[in-house]
Design a binder for these strands. Sequence first.
DNA 1: CGAAGAGATATGACCAGAAA
DNA 2: TTTCTGGTCATATCTCTTCG
Length: 416
Amino acid sequence: MDLSDGLNYTVKEPNVSWNPEKKQFLCCLFKFFEKDLTAYKAVFDSVYEDDLRTFGFTHGVKESTLNTQWHDLRRSSHFEWGEVHLSPFDKDGRWSPFIAAIRRTLATLRIDLPEKARDDIDTSTFDPTLHTSSQPTSVSSNHLNTALSKYGGKECFWCVQERVNEEYIQARNKPREYTTGKGILEPLLYRWSNVDSQGVNNKNLYIAGLFVDWDKYFSPDMISQEKFDEYFSNHIHRKEVSSPFISTFKSMLAPVHRAVRNQEGAIISIIESKKLGDLVYSARGFCQKHQLRIGRYNGGGEYLIWGKVPSDAIICSFKVSTLKQIADEHDDIAEILQLRTIASYKHNQRSLKDALEKRGGYLDHTSGTIIGKLLSLLQVPFEFSGEVGIGMYYSWRLRKRGGPGKAFQEGLNACY
DNA sequence: CGAAGAGATATGACCAGAAA
DNA sequence: TTTCTGGTCATATCTCTTCG
């Protein structure tokens, strides 16, 4: 018997130890980078070099193994597969550490692997009811674990499993309610926050309180409609619990009103809604569906964003102290803004709007010029100045009837 | 009792060949 | 070619039994 041949038959290539991290890493390659198994292999081998050597690999993992593994994860609706592929296509989001590692490795290896500009992975075959998980999901892990440790019996496991499955079926089959849908959604949303706001509130990034530890992120697809409604309801009832949502408003007046009344470090941001995908929900829609009123609040004008507002969706941010300073330095701006009047009203309601109206109307060209000056001082990019300016025109009641005319736009443009 | 062991069952990694 | 699918084999986990 030829010994070397014999070795080839008996010495089997080792198996990859697919822990959750490696699965996520592999899925990130497929999700964010153009498909090229040779490049995927090079990156994977390099990143997990030590680990692979420990398990006995000498020439890295075969391309086919990576491909099969990814398809297997998809076929079995594996937890990590869903985690990566059902999450928003956001390169600055939860998967950014993986993406950064991949980019670094590609640069080191001098491999030119294009990144995808959008998600092209078909997730329609993903069935959460089948989903095999190495880690229970964040949603149901508590129920599952307590039930198991409490009773330990097979019957109980299955009844719990049944309920978990039901949650998933509901989550999948029911289209998510209250979503604003394309076309209806306001192009711009405004956000107010201060030092007391929960979550991460930066000038260029917002993260909801529940996801401050971004590793714990889950998409709304991963939870039931009931759970989603509970989060939504808690949020609009302003309950003191961590929320997966970020509040925004379609009008700039609402956040300005809150900001001038709660000045401590208040920031106002302007957000471009189309960069948020479909993770924006109308509070009005929710209140209508559930016939809900909280005092006089009916959700009008408020939109909740799930998870985070990535930096590329934030057009600009300014501190309310900057706004006040500008008003102090420019009488015409102060006269239009009426920050003191706004601050004197407890609620942003009819009476505040009436009070703003009392100031009297402006000629369109005049108001356009003043608003334009303000927006340029606040460094609102020119391309959004029209949208923001017109919004302010209505909110601040710059003329009693009708919309802004051509002269308003001309006045606005004159300042940039 | 509870620890240890044996057997049964489930899961994970992967291949080879079919299908597209 | 690439992608999908049925099946194998090894290992992990569960369940039941035995024995000190």
